[in-house]
Nucleic acid binder design. Structure first.
Length: 589
RNA sequence: GGCGUUGUAGCUCAGUUGGUUAGAGCGCCGCCCUGUCACGGCGGAGGUCGAGGGUUCGAGCCCCUUCAACGUCGCCA
């Protein structure tokens, strides 16, 4: 007997005709004609049709007993399909395996949802039986793309002499920013490790350690409520370099995204990537992560309302820290009252008190406040916002930050309604020139915009004492399609400056010592200037795959409520285990 | 933590104003079928209407509570 080749289910072509082949995989579908049985065999690589003829009775009988998702090994001879029976929908559709032997490696119960099609299934069911969901084309494709993205990242940095260095998952709790996951210590009852929110200080210590060029595909943990684009644990591309400037890091990371997109998706992003300042982004798009897949920038129209008798507009037209913003809605004049009511509701959902709209058609204009407006004002606004015949303008007035935010969300809403947010389009941009500190409107305190290790712009160190809110940070964000892909900065490498920043943030010397003493000490032993960046790989993969949830690019994701429905975690543990860890169960309210 | 949507057969869903025995497609089981590929034909099984309580002569439908998934706001240095 001729040698039996093992081939994947997607690998058969007319080249193999005549060869004896063993195919192993899952029963994708059975078509039993009584006197002839077709079994489609599936693996990650593809699908191949095998044919069983009653002439080979033993194999035929087994074939008739097969059910979807049984695992089988089929042996037979590759042959060209009879003319007219080719299947153009299948990559292997010109050939088939004439089976003469089949063994059942494992039977499958009827699956709880169809595995052989990408039909919509309740997500909790998909999560409970994730291993079945993983067999389906969508996740097979997404995980493949994710692999290619990460592989390209590793290749890119390897070619540039970076070291991938692993940092620990069990570290010291440094309770800043996001809530941490804590891990009890058995050997030191009552003490805890924390899981890293990110390897931020560790990678800086690697720079102090002379590694110079570091990257890592790093798992991070944050105990915050999740969203469609969040999970309690997530993966970052973490990068850090010594002796670099903002422009060095951005140039490197821009090369990286282009390399990754080319290698993993075959797409060449338009370069150079647009660069916006933080102030520009807020002014023109009402967001520090603008979606540049479409235009429709916000337009300031406060000037046209300087003399208006309309009280709330007059107030914001004159107030120094207010804006009146117009969002253009192309074709919006065709909208009905009901549509505008819907837009007003949407605006209220974004935090607006209300929404003023004006629409333009050849012979005139209409408005939600038509009785209060005059032709001159309306035409001035139209001129500024460059509204065409048939367009509408949505006007939002309020304090600068709130009005920008609301108008920015309205802009996205309009873009969504007009189908301008094409998931197959990729609009990257840089946002730079962030302030180092911000005012927290709730507490009134000064808080950092990025994180407390971010360096101020060169020459602005002195302003930290006199006017901290005016200090620009050496901080840059990479944004894709309105999603923040990652943040980076040049770090503080001077211990005195680092201490000063902590103090501005309200920490006492004693607190700094307790929380960050090891780090402050390291800064005293020759810390090189350094900076870097981190990207959210889950989000990156989500956008690359055209998905709207990072759960669809993670093999075993948790639900929005942090539950693992497959393993049923978190779950109770025996009291004995708790005792060993020095823990006692609290009574549940 | 707040708000919203959803929850009916294994899956995806329909279910009128509260009214007799809760339906469809797919899947599943059985029989038939030698060129199908969403094979086809015939027959059949399958329901705690998420859970608990209430209103009512009567609840899948109305009310309250609760659970879950998802979305959203807070939060996420």
């Amino acid at each position: 007997m001729a040698e039996v080749l093992r081939v994947s289910c997607g690998g058969l072509s007319p080249q193999e005709v005549g060869a004896r082949i063993e195919l192993r995989g899952w029963v994708h579908r059975r078509r039993d004609h009584g006197g002839l049985v077709f079994i489609d065999v599936r693996d990650r690589d593809g699908i191949t049709q095998s044919v069983f003829d009653p002439a080979v009775a033993s194999a035929f009988d087994v074939a008739q007993s097969l059910r979807n998702e049984d695992v089988i090994a089929v042996t037979g001879t590759v042959r060209i399909r009879p003319p007219g029976t080719e299947n153009p929908k299948l990559a292997t559709g010109d050939v088939e395996l004439a089976a003469d032997d089949v063994s059942v490696l494992a039977r499958s119960e009827t699956p709880p949802f169809p595995v052989n099609v990408d039909a919509d299934v309740d997500e909790s069911l998909r999560l409970k039986y994730r291993y079945l969901d993983l067999r389906r084309p969508r996740l097979q494709r997404n995980l493949t793309i994710r692999h290619k993205l990460v592989k390209a990242m590793r290749d890119f940095f390897d070619e540039r002499d970076f070291l991938e260095v692993e940092t620990p998952a069990l570290i010291k709790s440094t309770p800043e920013g996001a809530r941490e996951y804590l891990v009890p210590s058995r050997l030191y009852p009552g003490d805890f490790y924390a899981l890293p929110q990110s390897p931020q200080m560790l990678k800086q210590l690697l720079m102090i350690g002379g590694i110079g060029r570091y990257m890592q595909i790093a798992r991070c943990f944050r105990d915050e409520d999740s969203r469609a684009d969040r999970q309690p644990e997530f993966t970052q591309l973490d990068v850090e370099l010594s002796f670099v400037t903002e422009d060095d890091v951005m140039a490197l990371m821009e090369d990286c995204i282009a390399y990754v997109w080319r290698r993993a998706l075959g797409i060449e992003p338009a370069r150079p990537l647009p660069r916006l300042t933080h102030a520009q982004a807020l002014r023109d798009y009402g967001s520090d992560k603008p979606d540049l897949r479409f235009g429709l920038p916000l337009v300031d129209v406060a000037g046209t309302f300087a003399q208006t008798p309309i009280a709330f507009l007059a107030e914001h037209a004159r107030a120094p820290h207010s804006r009146i913003v117009a969002v253009r809605y192309p074709g919006g004049a065709a909208l009905s009252r009901r549509d505008f009511d819907g837009l007003t509701e949407a605006a209220k959902g974004f935090g607006a008190g209300g929404l003023v709209w004006v629409s333009f058609s050849g012979d005139g204009w209409k408005s939600s406040i038509a009785r209060l407006l005059d032709d001159a004002t309306v035409h001035a606004v139209r001129e500024l916002a460059e509204a065409q015949d048939g367009d509408a303008l949505l006007l939002v007035a309020g304090p600068r930050a709130a009005a920008s935010d609301i108008a920015g969300r309205l802009r996205l809403h309009v873009g969504e309604r007009l189908g301008l947010r094409d998931p197959a389009a990729f609009a990257f941009c840089w946002v730079v020139g962030f302030p180092l500190f911000e005012h927290d409107p709730d507490s009134g305190a000064i808080v950092f915009t990025h994180h407390p290790f971010t360096a101020p712009a060169p020459g602005q160190e002195g302003l930290i004492d006199t006017d901290p809110l005016s200090v620009r940070a050496q901080h840059y964000d990479l944004v894709l399609n309105g999603v923040e892909l990652g943040s980076g900065s040049i770090r503080i490498h001077d211990v005195a400056l680092q201490r000063k920043v902590f103090e501005i943030l309200g920490h006492t010397r004693a607190e700094i010592e307790t929380r960050f003493g090891f780090f402050m000490e390291a800064l005293r032993f020759g810390a090189p200037p350094h900076g870097g960046m981190a990207w959210g790989i889950d989000r990156l993969a989500m956008l690359a795959c055209g998905e709207t949830s990072i759960r669809d690019v993670i093999a075993f994701p948790k639900t929005q409520a942090f539950r693992d429905l497959m393993m049923d975690a978190p779950s109770a543990v025996p009291d004995a285990l708790l005792g060993e860890l020095g823990l006692r169960r609290a009574s549940r309210g």
